[in-house]
Amino acid sequence: MAQEQKPKQLLHLVFGGELEKLDRTEFKNLNELDIVGIFPDYASAAQAWKSKAQQTVDNAHMRYFVVHLHKLLQPGADGQ
């Protein structure tokens, strides 16, 4: 029997909050950051990001971000 291989974990964090100014990434209130979650791959993180961004489209100061956690955990490793 062939051993089943798990896909490589490339962890991504999705979070957002209201910005002080549109031209900077400085949040109005760090206590109100919205931590959407940690996702096992970029595709699922991007889907969560898009959903949250669409929910807040009426607030120009609200921004959501995808952070490549796997690059922080293993800075020299190859991957997406």
Rank of each mutant, 00 (worst) to 15 (best):
V67T: 11
L30I: 07
P40R: 07
S44Q: 15
K50L: 10
K71A: 02
A77S: 12
E20G: 09
K28V: 11
G37Q: 13
P75V: 02
S44H: 10
F39D: 05
I38E: 08
L33K: 03
Y64G: 12
E32Q: 12
Q5P: 01
N31C: 02
E26V: 15
G17N: 02
Q5G: 01
G17M: 02
N31G: 12
V57R: 15
N29P: 05
N59R: 11
L22I: 05
Q80C: 10
E32R: 11
A60C: 10
I38W: 00
Y42V: 02
V36M: 05
P7I: 00
Q3N: 03
Q3E: 07
A60T: 09
K8C: 03
V36G: 04
L72K: 06
M62G: 01
D34G: 02
G37R: 13
G37D: 11
E26P: 00
Q9N: 10
A77E: 11
G16V: 01
D58I: 06
A48I: 10
H12T: 08
L33D: 08
L30V: 04
G37K: 12
A60P: 04
A43K: 14
A53T: 15
E26R: 12
L73M: 14
A48G: 12
Q9I: 04
A2C: 04
K28H: 06
M62W: 06
V67E: 12
F27Y: 15
Q3I: 07
V57E: 14
Q80S: 13
H68Q: 13
V14T: 09
A60W: 00
F39M: 03
A77W: 05
Q54D: 15
F65E: 10
A43F: 01
Q55T: 08
H70Y: 02
V67Q: 12
D34H: 11
M62D: 04
A48L: 10
I38Q: 05
R63E: 07
Q55Y: 06
K71H: 10
A60F: 00
L73H: 13
D58S: 14
F39R: 01
M62T: 08
D34S: 07
A46G: 03
Y64D: 10
G79H: 05
N59H: 08
L11Y: 01
S44M: 02
I38L: 08
F39E: 04
V66Y: 00
T56G: 03
V14M: 11
R63H: 09
A43D: 14
L73S: 11
A77C: 02
G79I: 03
V66H: 00
L72E: 07
V67D: 08
V67M: 13
A48N: 11
G79L: 03
P75R: 00
H68L: 12
T25C: 13
K28P: 06
D41T: 00
N29I: 01
V36P: 02
T25L: 14
A43R: 13
Q74T: 07
E18S: 03
K71S: 05
I35D: 10
N59I: 09
E26Q: 13
F15G: 02
V14L: 09
K6M: 09
R24C: 10
K50D: 09
K28G: 03
N29F: 02
L11P: 00
M1T: 07
R24A: 12
Y64P: 14
H61Y: 10
P7M: 00
A43S: 13
H68T: 06
Q54L: 15
M62R: 14
K71M: 04
L10T: 11
L30N: 07
Q5F: 01
L73Q: 15
N31A: 07
D23N: 15
D41I: 00
D78C: 01
F39I: 05
V14K: 11
